[in-house]
Each structure stands twice: as structure tokens, then as C-alpha cells.
Design a protein around this nucleic acid. Structure first.
Lengths: 162, 162
DNA sequence: TATTGTTATACTCTATAACTATA
DNA sequence: TATAGTTATAGAGTATAACAATA
């Protein structure tokens, strides 16, 4: 909390002090995520995908037969919000919702051929765009970043292992 | 992209493979941010603050006389969205909007005594909550995390300096 | 009773265009 | 004409309650 010279108004181009926020991880996390998210949106636009539809598609391709509740859990979102998202992918014939014979309440999610192909292209585009966005951040720092993020995600952070 | 055994449906509790996403930084960034954001919301609730109102308040306390457009730039958001946010802080008498004599279009933002005090308490709460959330992640890893996040935020990533 | 997917709904955050009053 | 703040509006993303079909 800077004891700023409260008498003088900052000029129009005065830099804003973020002294207090500089140690606030959430602040940096949000800003960094915004940058990545913006790049991701541009990258996925040609495929008519957003981060959420992309993530869902990748998870379905990687886990054929997945149920909606499992996907919702994997994506850390509520079941209702997944419905419209899957409606969109299904309407575009990228995935199918197949009735599960052994449990007629559930749907098994599968990617169509078109979905699998689109996914492959999108993954490739995202990978190379992210590669470019993270240029200058070396392998070690990148691995450390992901490792730390995963520890935060997964509840903790309090575990010993990297 | 795992070549999963497409024949067998995953059982209800089967773990979902995120093989493809595991290397996708945006995915981890989002999930880690969600965890931090959830903790932050709980932490700020007693103060009747959210991440955005908290961030604005801190920046105003640290930069008395700040103008709305500067604050919007500092918070990486559009000017219109700041208005309601500041309305809220002003209605609670945590900040004031003072006319700038030299430019009667602009407002100089200042925290009131109440705003400054609330800010101080909130910062303290956030700091200790974050400390607890990031337990187990040692000083070096935490510093590395923030350093890497800042490089991503600030455009790049392509710069050499830490 | 509990669970799967669904509908409806509401709230937050975000983005854009257009207005006003000043410069 | 350009800028500061504002209004109105629309779009995402997210969260909850309640329902039908099924277990």
C-alpha cells in the first residue's frame, strides 16, 4: 500500500502502481489467463470453436463413450451448462449422443469422423500457437509453470510431490 | 490423443484421460485460476467485495487521484464496465469521485477513510488465505510462478529478462 | 430414494455502439 | 475533432432449483 503523494494528481500517462497486487497470485493468474484466452480464441475461430467447445471435443475424442456427468466433472462445470454446449457440437455433427443400453438415463458421447478430424486440426493449431505465445519461456520454466498450476488445480499444493 | 479402447464404455467412476490437454497451458491456467478465484470469493465475502471490486479498491488506495480511464487500463477492462463497479464502491462510501479542476471531464478517484480501512483488512485476509492456499509450494516455486505469469501477461514471454 | 439429462432462470463479467459534456 | 465518463445492450460463462425418465 503505497503512501503516494496524495496532493499531486497523476498525469494522464502516469503509470499505475500495483504494489499491493504484485504479490497477489490471483491477479496475475487472471491477467495471464486473459492473454492466453485471447490468443486461444483467435486460434480456434477458424474452426468455429471456443475454449469450452474445444475442451469438450478433445475430452470426448480422448475418452469415447464418456457420459455427460463425467465430462461435466472433468471440465469442472455444472451439468446444465454442458447441455447447450453439447447441443452445439451435436448439431454440427462433430459428436453423437448414444443411449447407453445398460443405463437408459445416460448418454455415451462419441466423436464422429468429422469431429475427430476437426479436433486433430484444432489441437495442432492450438499447440503451435501456444508454442509461439510461450516463446522465450524455456522448457524448464514451462514445465515448472504447468507443474505448479496442476498442484494448485488438484486441490493442493499441500502435497509433497511435484 | 489417446487411442482408447473404444469398445469398452468407461464405468461410472472411470477417470477421464486428459492426455491431450495435459500439455495445454490455457487449460491448467483456467483450472488453477478457478481454484484461486473460488478461495478469493470466500475470503472477500465477509467484506462484501468481489475480485473486481477488491482490485479496484486496492488500486485506488495505492494511487490516489487515479482517473477512471487509467483504472480501466490498469484493470484491463473496458471503461463502461468500470462504471457500475465504481458506483457500487461509491454508494458504499468507500471511494469518492472528485471533479478534476484542470479537466472537468475527468474524475479523480480517492479512497475514503472507510475504504482505506476496509482495503487494509481485505488485503490482509487475502494475503493470509493465499498463503494457506499455496502452502506446500515453496518460495522459489511461487516466485517462479509469478515471474512466469508476469511474462505472459505483459505481452511477453519473448523478452529475455526475468 | 437417488441419479442422468434437461429446462428455466439469474447473476457476473465482458464487449460495443452511441450519447453528453467537456477539451 | 477527440477524450472522459456514461448509458444501453448483448453475449459469454456460471450456478441453482426443479422436472421427467430411469435406476
Amino acid at each position: 500500500m503505497k503512501n503516494a503523494t496524495a496532493t499531486s494528481l497523476p498525469s494522464r500517462d502516469a503509470p499505475v502502481s500495483d504494489a499491493t497486487l504484485r504479490v497477489f497470485v490471483g491477479y496475475h493468474m487472471k491477467r495471464a489467463f486473459n492473454v492466453i484466452q485471447a490468443d486461444l480464441s483467435r486460434t480456434l475461430a477458424p474452426f468455429d470453436l471456443r475454449m469450452l467447445t474445444y475442451t469438450a471435443l478433445v475430452l470426448i475424442v480422448d475418452n469415447p463413450g464418456l457420459r455427460q456427468s463425467q465430462l461435466a466433472a472433468a471440465m469442472d462445470m455444472e451439468r446444465p451448462n454442458l447441455v447447450v454446449l453439447l447441443d452445439e457440437l451435436e448439431a454440427r455433427a462433430l459428436i453423437t449422443r448414444d443411449r447407453v443400453p445398460t443405463d437408459r438415463r445416460a448418454y455415451a458421447l462419441r466423436a464422429t469422423l468429422a469431429g475427430t478430424q476437426l479436433c486433430k486440426q484444432a489441437v495442432s493449431a492450438v499447440t503451435s500457437h501456444e508454442e509461439r505465445l510461450l516463446d522465450g519461456i524455456d522448457k524448464d520454466a514451462r514445465a515448472a509453470l504447468i507443474a505448479t498450476l496442476r498442484r494448485i488445480e488438484t486441490g493442493h499444493a499441500k502435497e509433497e510431490s511435484a
